[in-house]
Write a protein that binds this DNA or RNA. Structure first.
Length: 597
RNA sequence: GGCCCGGUAGUACAGUUGGUUAGUACGCCAGCCUGUCACGCUGGAGGUCAGGGGUUCGAGCCCCCUCCGGGUCGCCA
């Protein structure tokens, strides 16, 4: 059935032609988007990745045999048509189409491929559920919206390569099969055939290799690097994803940030024609948490947090007093003018919402025209209410939401509530791109599960100079030379200045509770290398997928990945992961303990 | 692992209080049609109501379990 090209060459893409081409003989190739059969006249919209062109099969100008053949054309058939570009006039013009003033009158054509009826409509209006689209991803990718996303992703990667190349960065590949570094996320493991019982790990990031490249003297490195983390998925998280990864030698924090600000400026100009003002705002971690309850604050709107602990610390209301006495705090968000925006039922729903973040409850005060309505008013003294009003700017027409708990819980729940409120109150402006740096992250994070401090960024991050002496005496208060780049409340990248002193690195491993033997076993190659003159260095990495997602304006990372995985980390199209032959397992020295029918 | 939402022709949905033969639109198939462009007209085919179990005279609808998808908390150095 499929005909061969036999020397036919495509003149150009479907949308490449204009009125100036009228009369020109052209050859177009593409997929049948829409067919309209009027009996003795058949219209087909021919589609390629640029768009569509109408081609016309006329029974008067084609042989009967050819016209009958044209009548067999169906959706998604692949055609090659030869004919004359012709102007459409009068009501033949379709002003909704880019090529609506043109059509090609077919003189000769080939049906290069036939197609079964696709399981869903290949168009942007298609509402088929995502699982079906992912099962037939190759068809889903024909939709203009998906093509637009992948083209944008390409553009971002291309701009990155162009920019970093011009800045003297070398793109150097690092291994995909590498050594497990269990400090971070779970590793994907690959069994070794030649080393029974031993495993490679897929890289969570090229971190150690890029540091070694600095030691080797490649003082500006970058890579568009595939990374793998065996953790649960989210709307903005895939198990295999791509980083724009870079590292620089002989630099401090500001140097890394300066180069990257220029990159971001270029990126937003060339993708969205948005002008980014430099330098970008810088926010300390502590301030970000205090004001926004988040280390990746969305600064496109207000609703900032307000600490009212001081004025309620002696309150008779035991929930408030208790939280403070236990080392926590009481904080509030004043939703200005939102008094009438929430029914009692909706407020209760917000209370349920914050429980997701382990808050025990949500206190609120609704300042109506006739006074404050609030379930907690009876517990508060008049001067406490007055003080709260003063601190938070609480006025008639406002609603105040208050959470009292451990700081971690207060930040998480109020930070989430802040986003929820902004969404409900339509406070988030469109087409605004707020980029900012968050810096001075804590070096360590206490892990209840492990019963020890863990590196918040990673174990190779340098502490801040002024906190160096507290590494052992007070690890919890040590700040790191670590920074994240945040766009509209999404962490799109992060990095740090690394430790380049062998002694300090050893001290760090000890602070993290590793014995020297454990450190040697896991990171010995790095420690060894550091004996040979590592330069001061630092860098960062962007999540390319997230960047593409935000720049494309979609809310799912799957929209900007050609072949993504679903929530249980499987691929509906290939069926991966899947069982393998016993023979393969034998060769890998793996005994299979679990197998379904 | 927890919580929330969802699963009905190829697709998107409707389906009343549990009650006769499960509907609508698009798509598909056939016929007619020379200017369509959301083509039109006529006719037709198409259902494991996710799967299993239960309650009931009777289940798409109620209950339980399982599977699958989405969101999220934990997790993600």
């Amino acid at each position: 059935m499929s005909e061969l090209l036999s020397g036919w060459k495509r003149t150009g893409y479907c949308t490449e032609f204009t009125a100036a081409d009228a009369g020109r003989e052209v050859t177009l190739m593409g997929w049948t988007n829409v067919r309209r059969d009027l009996g003795a006249l058949v219209f087909v919209q021919l589609r390629d990745r640029t768009g569509v062109m109408q081609v016309v099969f006329n029974s008067e100008t084609l042989s009967k045999e050819d016209f009958d053949r044209a009548c067999t054309i169906r959706s998604e058939y692949v055609l090659a048509v030869r004919g004359k570009v012709t102007l459409r006039t009068g009501n033949m013009v379709n002003s909704n189409m880019k090529t609506g003033d043109l059509e090609v009158l077919v003189e000769e054509f080939k049906i290069l491929s036939t197609s079964e009826t696709p399981p869903f409509d290949i168009s942007d209006e298609c509402k088929a559920n995502e699982l079906l689209r992912l099962k037939y991803r190759y068809l889903d990718l024909r939709r203009p919206a998906m093509q637009k996303h992948l083209i944008m992703r390409h553009k971002i990667a291309f701009i990155a390569r162009e920019f970093f190349d011009k800045q003297g960065f070398l793109e150097i590949e690092t291994p995909i099969l590498t050594k497990s570094t269990p400090e971070g996320a779970r590793d994907y493991l690959v069994p070794s055939r030649v080393h029974p019982g031993k495993f490679f790990a897929l890289p969570q990031s090229p971190q150690l290799f890029k540091q070694l490249l600095m030691l080797s003297g490649y003082d500006r490195y970058f890579q568009i690097a595939r990374c793998f983390r065996d953790e649960d998925l989210r709307a903005d998280r895939q198990p295999d994803f791509t980083q724009i990864d870079l590292e620089m030698s002989f630099v401090e924090e500001e140097d890394v940030q300066a180069v990257n600000e220029e990159f971001l400026k270029k990126l937003f100009k060339e993708t969205l024609d948005v002008d980014i003002q430099l330098p970008l705002p810088r926010l300390k971690y502590e301030e970000a948490m205090d004001r926004f309850g988040s280390d990746k604050p969305d600064t496109r709107f207000g609703l900032e947090l307000c600490d009212i602990s001081e004025v309620v610390k002696h309150s008779e209301f035991s929930v408030f007093r208790g939280a403070i006495e236990n080392g926590g705090s009481v904080r509030a968000i004043n939703a200005k003018g939102a008094s009438g925006s929430f029914s009692r039922k909706e407020i209760d729903a917000l209370g349920e919402y914050v429980k997701t973040y382990r808050a025990k409850g949500l206190a609120w005060m609704n300042y109506k025209e006739d006074g404050i309505a609030s379930p907690i008013l009876k517990f508060l003294k008049e001067e406490e209410v007055t003080a709260i009003k003063e601190l938070t700017g609480f006025e008639p027409g406002d609603i105040l939401f208050i959470i009292a708990d451990a700081n971690k819980t207060v930040y998480a729940s109020l930070g989430a509530l802040r986003l929820k409120l902004a969404d409900k109150l339509n406070l988030i402006p469109e087409n605004q791109f707020n980029l900012l740096w968050v810096r001075e992250f804590p070096q360590f994070e206490w892990s209840e599960e492990e019963g020890r401090f863990m590196a918040m960024h990673h174990p190779f991050t340098s502490p801040m100079d002024e906190d160096m002496d507290k590494l052992e005496s007070d690890p919890g208060s040590v700040r790191a030379k670590a920074y994240d780049i945040v766009l509209n409340g999404v962490e799109i990248g992060g990095g740090s200045i690394r430790i380049h002193s062998q002694e300090l690195q050893q001290q760090m491993f000890r602070a993290l509770g590793f014995t020297d033997e454990q450190a040697q076993y896991r990171f010995g190659f790095l420690m060894d290398a550091f004996k040979y003159g590592p330069p001061p260095h630092g860098g960062m990495a962007y999540g390319l997928d997230r960047l593409a997602m935000l720049i494309s304006g979609t809310s799912s990372i799957r929209d900007v990945i050609a072949f993504p995985k679903v929530q249980n980390a499987s691929c509906p199209m290939t069926g991966a992961p899947d069982f393998v032959d016993d023979k393969q397992l034998d060769e890998l020295h793996i005994a299979c303990t679990e197998k379904e029918e």
